[in-house]
Amino acid sequence: MSAETDLIKLYSGRILALAADMPRTERLAAPTATAKRRAPLCGSTVTVDLKIEDGIVTDYAQDVKACALGQASAAILGKVIVGLSVAEIQTGRDALHAMLKSDGPVPAAPFAELEVLQPAKDYKNRHASIMLAFDATLDAISETQATA
């Protein structure tokens, strides 16, 4: 396959559709915590606001300035995060990381849709952007735990 064909495969219609339909883009008025992450290689950034009660995310917002792959990952996270525990989010993040870095399996529900990002495992320079929303979210959660 040529490099151009590989890129077309990488930026599939499903990825572009996810990127175009980003949920939870309105910032929260009074978040429990906010965190911002930046991928140094590409300059992508994700800022998240969240509300968390008793270890469960009760509200979430994201400002995503990333490539379509980073946007797709953030869109999937944004669709499922409310109602999840900190442990479930960490498990999803770790499974995504393993899928990209060590040919791990597709993350389990509620993150199974991350399967769409499997072709990106061969593009290491895109991994940081794909991980941004999860990492920023866990940073925000850590902030809430540090002040509790």
Rank of each mutant, 00 (worst) to 15 (best):
A3L: 09
T5W: 03
T5L: 11
D6V: 02
K9D: 10
L10N: 10
Y11I: 14
S12K: 02
S12G: 05
A17V: 07
A19N: 09
A20F: 10
M22P: 09
T25R: 14
A29P: 02
A30Y: 01
P31T: 01
A35W: 04
R37W: 03
R38V: 11
R38W: 00
P40G: 09
L41M: 14
S44M: 02
T45A: 00
I52L: 14
E53N: 05
D54M: 05
D54G: 14
G55T: 14
V64I: 12
C67R: 08
C67K: 08
L69K: 03
G70Q: 02
A72S: 15
G78K: 09
V80D: 09
I81Q: 07
V82C: 07
L84A: 04
L84E: 03
V86H: 12
V86F: 11
A87T: 14
Q90L: 09
G92N: 15
G92D: 13
R93N: 06
H97E: 09
A98Y: 05
K101I: 04
K101G: 00
S102I: 06
G104F: 13
P105M: 07
V106M: 07
E115R: 04
V116M: 05
Q118I: 03
P119N: 01
P119K: 02
K121Y: 08
K121C: 03
D122W: 02
Y123V: 05
Y123T: 04
R126D: 07
R126S: 12
H127I: 15
A128Q: 13
S129G: 13
F134G: 11
D135E: 13
D135L: 10
A136N: 09
D139Q: 10
D139Y: 02
D139I: 04
D139T: 08
D139P: 00
E143R: 12
E143N: 06
T144I: 00
T144K: 01
T144L: 00
Q145M: 07
A146Q: 09
T147W: 00
